[in-house]
Design a protein around this nucleic acid. Structure first.
Lengths: 239, 239
DNA sequence: CGCAAGATTGAACGACATCAAACTCTGTGG
DNA sequence: CCACAGAGTTTGATGTCGTTCAATCTTGCG
C-alpha cells in the first residue's frame, strides 16, 4: 500500500527518499469521513490540509436557488484543500461522495517543507497547478462542448486519473458517483445526464452499471470528448 | 509607476524590501505585444514566464468546431503563464486582447527564488492559487447561474481586480473587451451577450459605452451576480 | 467621406430544463 | 425469504433560455 500521493507525484518527477520520508512524516493523523458528510466547509479557516487516501470527494458550491455546482472531483492521492494553506479561507466546501480515508497534514508542517525542501515544495505547487489545469479544461468543456462530449471528456479524465494511482483494472474503474452528482459536475440536470449516458452506451463507448465503469472504445470516446491528456501533466520530467 | 505585481501581492501579505528587489531583478526584459497576437501558444514549452505590466490578455482554447473558450482574463499585475514554470507544456494559448507590455521572468530565476526565498515562493504559489479560485468561481457561474447573473458576476470580479492594481477611477474602469470576447469568456453567443448587457443597462446596474465601464449600483449588481469577493483573497495576512 | 469592426435587432430553431410518474435495485426487518 | 422502503435510474411531455442566421445600424478612424 504505497501512499497514493507519492504514486501521483512520482508520475511527474523523481522523488528522493528524504522527500518521501518528509511527506510520510507530514501526516499527523488519519481519519475516516462517511459518505455525504462535509470534509471542509465553505468559510472554514483550516490549519491543516486533507489528503485523500481512499474514496471519492467533491469540491462544491451552493448558489442562491439551492442548486449545486461541483468544481472538482477527487480520487485517492489528491489533496482536497492544499490551497487552504495559503488561501486561508475556504471559498467552497468539500464533500465525501463515498466513505473517505483522509490523511491530515498541518499547515505548520507544510510551511516547514517550504522552508527546507524547495524541490518538494515545487512538486506540491505543481499538484495545485494540475488542479488549476483541470479547472480550465472543465471550463472549456462546459462552455463550448455539447453535453455528450462533456460527459465523454469527464469519463476519459477520471479513468486516467484513477489509473495513475493504481485504481484501474484493465479498462474498468469503480466510479461510485450518482447521476445527480454527475449533473452537478457537468452543470446539467439529472434527467439529461441519464440521456447522455444512454447515448454513450448505445454508441458502444462505455458500459456503466452500478459503480463499474468500463471503457469499451477508448479511441472513439476520446474523439467524442475531444480529449487530450496534456493538461494532466502525466510526463515525468525535472520540475 | 509601481510594479503592479507588487501592488497585487502587497494586497495579500507584507513584502520585505529584499523580496521586492528579488522580484524586480527577476525581470529579464520587457516587450510589447500588439492586440490579437499570441503571447504564448498551446503546446509551447517556454523557459520564461510572462508578467503583464499593462493591457488585457486572455487564456484560451479552441475546440474542434472552431469555437473558442476563454478560461481566464488577465489585467496588469497578473502572471499569464507562471504555471508553465512547473507544468512545462502549455495546455492553452495566451492572447493579447489589447496592446500589452510584458515583463519576462526566466524559469531559471524562478527556480532560484524557490531555493532562496521561501516566503516569496509561497506568495507566487498563492498567485497561482488565486487563479485557480477564479477558475472555480467561473465554473460555478457557468454551470449554475443564468447568463445575466454570470455577466454581472464577471463584471464585479473585473472591477475589483482592476481596482486592486490601481486601474479604477471611482466607479469606472477601462474595459477594452468586445462582446464577442465576452461571449467566449462566458460560453455565450455574441448575440446573447448583447442582450444580457442591455438588460443590465436597462436595470440601471451598469453603463458600458466604448471601453468605459461604470458600476451604477454595486450592491444590486453583486446581488444579481451572486458575487462575494472571498475567492479573490483580498485580505492582507501572513502567508 | 467611406470603410471596417463592432453593436444591435428580429425571427426561427434547438439543446437542455422542468415536471411528474414509473421503474429497478439493494438492503433491511419481520 | 418475502415485503417494503428508499435511493437512484429511466421515461415522456412540455417549456424555456440561449443559439443561429441574416440583416441593419453605429462608431471610430484613415
Amino acid at each position: 500500500m504505497t501512499n497514493p500521493l507519492i504514486l501521483k507525484l512520482e508520475q511527474r518527477d523523481q522523488l528522493s527518499d528524504e522527500e518521501k520520508r518528509a511527506l510520510e512524516n507530514a501526516i499527523a493523523r488519519v481519519r475516516v469521513v462517511e459518505a455525504d458528510e462535509d470534509i471542509v466547509r465553505e468559510g472554514d479557516r483550516p490549519n491543516e490540509s486533507s489528503l485523500l487516501l481512499d474514496g471519492f470527494a467533491a469540491r462544491y458550491k451552493i448558489v442562491s436557488n439551492g442548486r449545486r455546482q461541483i468544481s472538482a472531483l477527487h480520487v485517492a492521492g489528491d489533496f482536497l484543500d492544499l490551497h487552504s494553506f495559503l488561501l486561508k479561507t475556504m471559498d467552497h466546501g468539500v464533500l465525501a461522495l463515498t466513505t473517505c480515508r483522509i490523511a491530515t497534514v498541518p499547515h505548520a508542517t507544510l510551511e516547514k517543507i517550504t522552508d527546507e525542501f524547495p524541490h518538494l515544495t515545487r512538486l506540491l505547487w505543481l499538484n495545485t497547478l494540475i488542479d488549476g489545469a483541470i479547472h480550465r479544461e472543465w471550463l472549456t468543456a462546459m462552455g463550448r462542448l455539447s453535453a455528450t462530449a462533456h460527459m465523454a471528456h469527464l469519463i476519459c479524465e477520471l479513468y486516467l486519473r484513477l489509473k495513475v494511482v493504481g485504481r484501474a483494472e484493465g479498462d474498468s474503474v469503480q466510479l461510485p458517483i450518482t447521476q445527480a452528482e454527475l449533473g452537478d459536475t457537468l452543470g446539467l440536470s439529472t434527467v439529461h445526464v441519464n440521456r447522455v449516458l444512454q447515448e454513450l452506451r448505445k454508441e458502444g463507448l462505455i458500459r456503466f452499471q452500478g459503480d463499474a465503469l468500463t471503457i469499451l472504445d477508448w479511441e472513439r470516446l476520446k474523439k467524442v470528448g475531444e480529449f487530450t491528456s496534456t493538461y494532466l501533466s502525466l510526463q515525468n520530467e525535472d520540475r
